[in-house]
Computed example of a mutant assay.
Amino acid sequence: MSTDSATAALYAQALQSTATVPSRCTVPWGVCPEHGGTLKSRARATEGFDSWCTNPVCFNVWPYDRLDAACTEPATHTIQADGGDRYVVCDGHAQITDGQVLPGLPA
């Protein structure tokens, strides 16, 4: 499998996980599950992408471009947007939202 094919397969897997598991975070891009919007990504010349958390005490790394893939973390919070819409997010996305964060998932 080529690097592009492997990366595409990882993206597809993340998107499918989000679509088929309603208890997953609904945000279409990734974060560090512990520190929120602290990710960096880079393309590797021979093996695809790496993503990592830039928090100096965090050692989380991923072998794909997590910033560009749908979040596959479990939903733990409900966000009440200014327009009244509600959506579910993971711990990492709850740290960086502009909406009102409500603990738990909607009934």
Score class of each variant (00 low, 15 high):
G92K: 12
V101N: 03
P106V: 04
A45W: 08
V27S: 05
V101T: 13
T18Y: 00
I79P: 05
S17N: 05
T38S: 12
L15K: 13
W62G: 07
M1P: 00
A9E: 03
C53L: 06
R66L: 13
A9L: 00
H77C: 04
A6Q: 07
P33S: 12
G99E: 09
T38K: 12
A45E: 13
V57P: 01
C58A: 10
A12G: 00
G48V: 03
L105A: 02
L102T: 10
G99L: 06
E73T: 01
L102Q: 12
Y87H: 15
G30K: 10
G99N: 08
T3G: 01
W29M: 06
T76F: 02
E47R: 13
T7R: 03
C25V: 07
E47Q: 13
A70Q: 04
C32G: 01
P56I: 08
N60E: 05
T46Y: 06
A6M: 03
C71K: 08
P28V: 12
H93W: 05
V101P: 02
C90F: 12
T7I: 06
H35Q: 12
R44E: 13
W29K: 05
C71M: 07
D98T: 13
G37M: 00
P33H: 11
P33K: 05
A70G: 13
W62F: 14
C32N: 02
G48K: 08
V21G: 00
C58R: 11
V27K: 10
L39Y: 03
V89L: 02
D65Q: 08
A107S: 14
M1Y: 00
H77S: 09
G83M: 03
S5T: 10
D65Y: 07
T46S: 12
R42M: 11
L39C: 01
V61I: 11
R42H: 08
G36E: 09
Q16N: 08
G92M: 12
D68Y: 05
C32A: 02
P106K: 08
D82N: 12
Y64T: 05
M1R: 00
L39Q: 01
A6D: 00
S5A: 14
K40D: 06
V21K: 14
S17K: 09
D65V: 01
G104S: 10
A81D: 14
R86Y: 11
A12T: 10
S23A: 12
C58K: 08
V57N: 07
D98R: 13
D91K: 14
G30H: 08
G104I: 10
D98E: 14
Y11I: 01
A75C: 11
E34K: 13
S5G: 00
G48Q: 09
P28Y: 06
A70E: 00
T76R: 14
R24N: 14
H93G: 02
D4L: 01
S23R: 15
A43V: 07
G99Q: 08
F59G: 06
T26N: 08
A94H: 06
C32H: 02
R86K: 15
F49W: 15
T46Q: 11
L15P: 02
H93P: 02
T76L: 14
Q13V: 05
F49L: 04
D4Y: 01
A70M: 05
V89E: 03
H35L: 10
A6Y: 04
D4M: 04
A12P: 01
K40F: 09
A45H: 07
W52V: 05
P63M: 04
M1E: 02
T76E: 14
Q80K: 14
A8I: 03
S41G: 03
A107P: 12
